[in-house]
Design a binder for these strands. Structure first.
Length: 645
RNA sequence: GCCGAUAUAGCUCAGUUGGCCAGAGCAGCUGAUUUGUAAUCAGCCGGUCGGCGGUUCGAAUCCGUCUAUCGGCUCCA
């Protein structure tokens, strides 16, 4: 007998070799039907895998990530089985579960392709196979047998995969006619899968390396109930409505022109006003934190970037140098602001008493991103960073770092970005050839970041190998409507540029010392930040930020004049108002201004003139009462003050 | 850059197997109406069917190419 401990710490005895499924069934049939996988002493098991020793167990259902993971992983096998049945001769690479379903990387035989027209056929086959309720059977396989199996099958990708595995750890899973190298865990049988949808296909380089062959990645998602699939598809439709590219068009915030060029956004008046308001907001914060504004040109001599090291690293893949009538003279569009700011630092000598010096600039930069990477406003070729560079003494580094974290957190709080994550990016543990600067400096910088994050109590993820080539960094990521993560705020430590530009300050010992540099951009870039903000708010911007706070709707043309006088009074009280004086009925005006996501509407007509009040409506909610112009102005300013306190 | 898909009026979309002057709704303009809390009615304007080249008696429709966009991959100073 073995002892099984449940999450609530109750203990029950079962005979050795009992399976998770049997345990679940002993508790209730309902549970046995719902449970998908089981954690045994911290390792996730198939429900059908025997448990041979005392164990602490947790059952995973559909609502647990682990449960979904097993479900989708099994579905990837099912899809692979269906693909093999429909397209004989395919070779398989890997097929993991992901956040929203699963994929399988497949090498189709020469000349064979799959398009979205094939999806229904594939879905149908998957469901047919699922209905056979084939068991997922786990077997442990010796390495040489595993190699033999795939060599005979002619699947060199799997052979490559097994080559890297240790003998004695290799398991196969088989369901129906399909066998796959896999660690598991899996569902008991395919019958759990009731609904399947192939989402998309894409090219994916083998092992993620651009130089390798491109395999076909087929994305799919499955559900234990048909209804869940329908709900998921509805959710996707809803998410599409929040897409910043769609809302940006609807609200006339920005546009693109193929004639201007790919990835070069054009900000429309309403978008520009929104952006200016954001910039002003940050400028006000920065003033409190001791930042000084600077302004630098959009181009710089090539030599500047040779000095900074950026030319060697990115020169080939950037916008190419601008030539002038002068022989041999070359300028680059600036891909970042730091070298210019270094030159500003160098424009006069500095004492240790002056530091830290914080130069801030909304600096527009140009980077030649690969065409396929461009994406709305989140990934563009010309964008404006809310950039600043802090030059400080090594002993000030941590404190300065913490102050920047405070700014980012304040901004996120003001804009209700609650669901952000933070990532510390450090050097690759093994390969250090791609980084410049001394080990000693790197270690100091990495330690400063880790400590600063600990002190601020940030819940961080540490990624090795993700650091910039010149220093470690801390990034703040926020998700868009479809759950894709975008990096917004960034704070990066740099020991490299001060070295390359030979930046100095005179210490209390009257000797020359090298300052440390911090690059930081709390928004990241205005473009990306506005994009994520649009998706976050679905275009319903906070009152302080939105271009038009109030729409005044005269009941008929007879009251247009009065409406304009109300607007003037509101403007005098710093309330941004417009009059909808079109020859339309009130109902129509309300509808149109609701669609334009204007936070407040006031209706004016005979009654309002008589009583000297406004009839106020809130976007999405309807009438909220009558107020005088003064009361309403105060009402708006109060709300604005609450939002940005 | 790579794999796959898409491109019709300012916006959202129709347009059968190639066949007369390419359609609708919204927006815009004009007029009627003078409107009370999510769409008043009528008329009008608006398109080199993304660009270029080809096949054909004939191309929005078929083929090639370029440009841009979308979903991924790779990349992201």
């Amino acid at each position: 007998m073995i002892k099984i401990t449940f999450p609530d710490n109750t203990v029950k005895e079962f005979s050795k070799g009992v399976t998770g499924y049997e345990i679940a069934k002993s508790i209730s049939h309902g549970l046995a039907k719902e449970v998908l996988s089981v954690s045994v002493n911290g390792e996730t098991y198939d429900l059908t895998r025997p448990i041979n020793e005392d164990a602490k167990i947790t059952f995973y259902k559909w609502n647990d990530n682990e449960g979904k993971h097993a479900f989708w992983h099994s579905s990837a096998h099912l899809m692979a089985e269906a693909v093999e049945a429909l397209y004989p001769g395919v070779k398989l690479w890997v097929g993991p579960a992901v956040d929203n379903g699963f994929y399988y990387d497949i090498d189709f035989p020469e000349g064979q392709t799959i398009t979205d027209k094939d999806f229904p056929k594939l879905e149908k086959m998957m469901i047919e196979l699922a209905q056979q309720k084939n068991e997922y059977v786990r077997t442990e396989v010796a390495k040489k047998d595993a190699l033999k199996f795939y060599s005979e099958k002619g699947d060199e990708y799997k052979v490559d995969l097994i080559d890297g595995l240790e003998d004695g750890t290799i398991t196969f899973y088989k369901q129906g006619n399909f066998t796959d190298l896999c660690r598991g865990p899996h569902l008991p049988n395919t019958g759990y899968i009731k609904a399947a949808k192939i989402m998309s296909i894409a090219g994916a380089y083998w092992k993620g390396d651009e130089k390798n062959k491109q395999l076909t990645r087929v994305y799919g998602i499955t559900f234990p109930k048909k209804k869940l699939l329908d709900e998921y598809l509805v959710m996707l439709e809803e998410a599409k409505k929040r897409d910043h590219r769609k809302i940006g068009k609807e609200l006339e915030l920005f546009t693109f022109s193929s004639r201007v060029g790919q990835g070069l956004p054009l900000w429309l008046p309403k978008g520009a006003m929104l952006r200016e308001r954001l910039e002003q907001f940050l400028k006000n914060v920065q003033k409190k934190y001791g930042y000084e504004p600077v302004i630098t040109p959009h181009i710089g001599q090539k030599e500047l970037y040779v000095t900074s090291g950026h030319y060697a690293k990115y020169g080939k893949d950037s916008f190419q140098p601008i030539h002038t009538p002068a022989e041999g003279e070359e300028f680059l569009l600036k891909p970042m602001n730091c070298p210019h700011h270094c030159e500003i630092y160098k424009s006069k000598p500095h004492s240790y008493k002056d530091l830290p010096i914080r130069y801030a600039e909304f600096g527009t930069v140009y980077r030649y991103e690969q065409s396929g990477e461009l994406h709305g406003l989140t990934r563009v070729r010309g964008f404006t960073q809310d950039d600043a560079h802090i030059f400080c003494r090594p002993d000030q580094l941590k404190e300065e770092f913490i102050k920047v974290i405070d700014i980012v957190l304040y901004i996120f709080k003001t804009l209700d970005f609650e669901n952000f994550s933070t990532q510390i990016s450090l050097r690759d543990k093994e390969d250090r050839s791609k980084y410049i600067g001394s080990d000693e400096n790197w270690e100091k910088a990495e330690a400063a970041i880790v400590e600063a994050c600990e002190e601020k109590g940030l819940n961080t993820v540490t990624e090795y190998g993700e650091a910039a080539f010149y220093g470690p960094k801390l990034d703040f990521m926020v998700k868009d409507a479809l759950g894709r993560s975008w990096q917004l705020g960034t704070i990066q430590v740099d020991y490299n540029l001060p070295e390359r530009f030979e930046l100095e300050y005179t210490g209390s010992d009257d000797k020359k010392h090298r300052p440390v540099m911090i690059h930081r951009a709390p928004f990241g870039s205005m473009e990306r930040f506005v994009a994520v903000l649009i998706e976050h708010t679905a275009g319903k911007f906070p009152l302080w930020l939105t271009s038009d706070q109030v729409a005044i709707l005269p009941v008929s043309e007879r009251f247009n004049e009065f409406a304009h006088s109300v607007k003037e009074k509101l403007l005098q009280n710093d309330v941004r108002a417009l009059v909808d004086d079109r020859n339309e009925k009130v109902g129509k005006k309300i509808r149109d201004n609701e669609m334009k996501r204007i936070p407040y509407m006031v209706i004016v007509g005979e009654k309002e003139i008589e009583t000297g009040t406004l009839s106020v409506r809130k976007q999405g909610e309807g009438e909220i009462g009558k107020m005088t112009i003064e009361e309403f102005s105060q009402f708006i300013s109060q709300r604005v003050a609450e939002e940005i306190k």
